[in-house]
């Protein structure tokens, strides 16, 4: 075998310098691009969520969408903070009111990120854990709610929105992101599956079951309180059913606390 020429120290330095410079400039370029594109991407996501909520609750342009963000505070047992459109309220786990801060006017219209930073300062060691939305008519009456939930599916977290009318009847379920298998688990995002949730009431949820087997041609909505699973994707279907149940129950409890 031919012996390889050894790398001299000088050459080693050159290689190191070479790689360091390349990685450094790569990081610099990507950092600049990220900073330029990230705000646009964020505002797009927010705009998409707004249109989705409007579609789910069938809102017109005049209706206002209020966002309620929830923060988990420090302590044992922990405290919960709710950020409303103009104030931050702190409750204990049983829903007893503890304290409130007024949100300064400059932050009321500010992007979410800035409001989160304000909360971090006022409510130290807390972190964002979830959110829900309430739709409000121009005259101040609430017309419906959308809550964000997540549940582990077959592979990873399934994130979804559940839209509810004022009297807690499901008006729509929409999967925001998931990593289920194409053709099997990802069928849960199709209307054929998710539309089965339409019209289900809060009191039905306790007995709501996932059924395996062929879906009958016509399901009588008053009689049947069941969701037909996607064939070959029972775990994904079950996850969405469980997730929706949890999300609605949590929303009901939290609304009672905040109201």
């Amino acid at each position: 075998m031919k012996e390889k020429s050894p790398i001299t120290a000088k050459e080693m330095w050159r290689i190191t310098l070479n790689l360091t410079l390349v990685c450094f400039s790569a990081a610099l370029i990507l950092g600049v691009v990220f900073n330029l594109t990230e705000p646009k991407k964020r505002s797009q996501i927010a705009a998409n969520e707004k249109t989705l909520i409007q579609k789910l609750l069938n809102l017109d342009e005049k209706a206002k969408i209020l966002e309620v963000r929830r923060y988990l505070g420090p302590g044992q047992p922990p405290t919960i903070g709710y950020l409303l459109s103009d104030e931050l309220r702190q409750y204990n786990l049983d829903g007893k009111f503890l304290k409130k801060w007024d949100l300064p006017e400059v932050f009321q219209k500010a992007p979410t990120q800035e409001r989160d930073e304000w909360v971090e300062k006022e409510f130290p060691e807390s972190h964002f854990v979830g959110r829900f939305f309430a739709a409000q008519n121009p005259d101040g009456t609430l017309t419906g709610y959308v809550t964000e939930g997540s549940q582990y599916g077959f592979k990873s977290l399934i994130r979804f929105f559940v839209a509810l009318s004022q009297n807690f009847q499901i008006r729509g379920v929409e999967v925001i992101s998931h990593e289920e298998d194409p053709g099997l688990g990802d069928e849960i995002t199709k209307p054929a599956f998710k539309n089965q949730f339409l019209g289900i009431r809060l009191e039905d949820l306790q007995t709501l079951k996932l059924t395996k087997g062929p879906k009958p041609e016509e399901v009588a909505p008053e009689k049947e309180k069941q969701i037909y699973a996607v064939t070959g994707a029972t775990i994904s279907s079950q996850a969405l059913v469980d997730g929706v149940k949890q999300a609605v129950w949590h929303l009901e409890r939290r609304l009672n606390v905040v109201r």
């Binding site: 790398i7 050459e11 290689i15 070479n18 790689l19 390349v22 990685c23 790569a26 370029i29 990507l30 691009v33 990220f34 330029l36 594109t37 990230e38 646009k40 991407k41 797009q44």
Partner: peptide, 25 residues
């Protein structure tokens, strides 16, 4: 001696930059 890693980094930078730009625009 390090040309292949450098090619990979260059390609990755362009791909990632394009990925982020497309996602935003």
């Amino acid at each position: 001696k390090v040309r292949i890693p450098i090619y990979t980094i260059v390609i990755a930078v362009w791909v990632t930059a394009m990925d982020m730009t497309l996602a935003a625009l």
